[in-house]
Design a protein around this nucleic acid. Structure first.
Lengths: 236, 236
DNA sequence: CAGTGGTCTAGACCACTCG
DNA sequence: GAGTGGTCTAGACCACTGG
């Protein structure tokens, strides 16, 4: 029932920051001092301090000390996004994927830059519409490195999502995501069954495996039917 | 120069997951086994496993074992957002805030729900336009609990941002953020100098302090001039 | 140099799950 | 009961910083 010691130390320290007893930039007591104050081992204090540092509350410098972090933390909210199929499943609806294009394509300048490859290089390209019940929720355009996924064009993307296929080949080691709003152009509008010019939420993703960009995707969502949510801290 | 032992263990384990040697759902060796295999103390293995768990690669259950995490991880990219003033400063541009409204207001049903307060209750309300050079980058509408920030209406929001004022009162303990796309209505369009109907990226935030919702904000951004970015893993 | 954080060890006790 | 993860201790060595 009782919280572990490192968690109690975290709570106490966090209280002193919230209180204003310790303010941004202040130096806080050393590990040895806190160890004596709370009557725990140094490793325990260390864990509390490390976690508070990871969470952005503290800044530590070896040989110098531990300091209360500045303002940046407060408006820095993580946003987590799952893949469409799960997103839809989590809401209790049926997911259906409709592949509308699957071919080899030449990289134009923009996509080539995103994939860190030469312009004109040939890669695999797919377009898939993801349906939530009878409404299109996402239109996915994806470029994939053939050396990473040689069987990409042979997949049935109504049965497995492109992202799931890539994951079966190897775990993704790193990723980047950009979130943008855009007005729908004619082609995308048609796929998502919205009017041309309607607002869309667009996710642009790049994923790395084995040290290279293996996939670049642009995911278009109708603004009325899609949003991203994120939290930090404990919302009581 | 050489990486700490816990980091080496992490790298090794991660490699086995990337390889496909361990697949999603597989049970991996126990801490005692890994301890013998790598020749390190159990605390060291423990730290490696804890961090991989925090990063989403592993799932652990006390009394049962440690398992390779499923697919969700791969498409789950955290997005970090800083406040506008910093964002603009980071790009090397001048930030200017223009307060356009600052008053007491009654909560309508929607905002009341967001703030977990009674409809009709009186709170403080502000509207501020944030400029990057000579272009408006954000139109901020904010509702604030008077019991938390009694001096809110007396602030000069051309000199301090609303969020900075709230932070000076107490640290934010928890937050929630929703990211949406919307078409600009007439009022917002005018403030952001875009056409009515133009796509906007909208952030809806709620922040908690002392266990209550203390602020609710809607931040409107012109789609052409604003996007959010996030990364995970090491992009080499 | 003394003080700091970063890491590590070899043990230990506990709560939990499963057969 | 045996095996698991979760935590904790009391020491230790190191790299780094500052005066």
């Amino acid at each position: 029932m009782t919280a572990p010691a490192y968690a109690k130390v975290k709570t106490q320290l966090l209280r002193r920051i919230s209180n204003g007893r310790w303010r941004a930039g202040d130096r806080i007591p050393s590990e040895h001092e806190l160890m004596r104050e709370f009557g725990v081992a140094r490793m325990t204090v260390g864990r509390a301090l490390r976690e508070l540092t990871d969470e952005g509350w503290l800044l530590r410098t070896q040989g110098v000390g531990t300091f209360v972090g500045g303002e940046p933390r407060a408006e820095s909210h993580p946003v987590e996004i799952r893949n469409v199929a799960e997103e839809i499943a989590a809401r209790g609806h049926a997911h259906r994927a409709e592949p509308v294009r699957l071919e080899e394509a030449e990289l134009d300048d923009e996509v080539a830059a995103a994939m860190e490859r030469a312009s004109g290089e040939r890669v695999f390209f797919s377009e898939v519409v993801h349906w939530e019940g009878d409404q299109p929720l996402q239109f996915e355009r994806r470029w994939v490195a053939p050396d990473f996924a040689p069987d990409y064009l042979a997949q049935d993307f109504s049965r497995i999502t492109p992202s799931a296929h890539l994951l079966k080949i190897a775990a993704i080691e790193a990723g980047e995501q950009i979130v943008r709003a855009e007005a729908a152009d004619r082609r995308v509008a048609a796929r998502l069954q919205v009017k041309t010019g309607a607002p869309l939420l667009v996710l642009v993703r790049r994923t790395w495996a084995r040290g290279r960009v293996v996939s670049h995707a642009r995911l278009f969502h109708p603004a009325q039917r899609f949003q991203l949510a994120g939290r930090f801290g404990d919302v009581k």
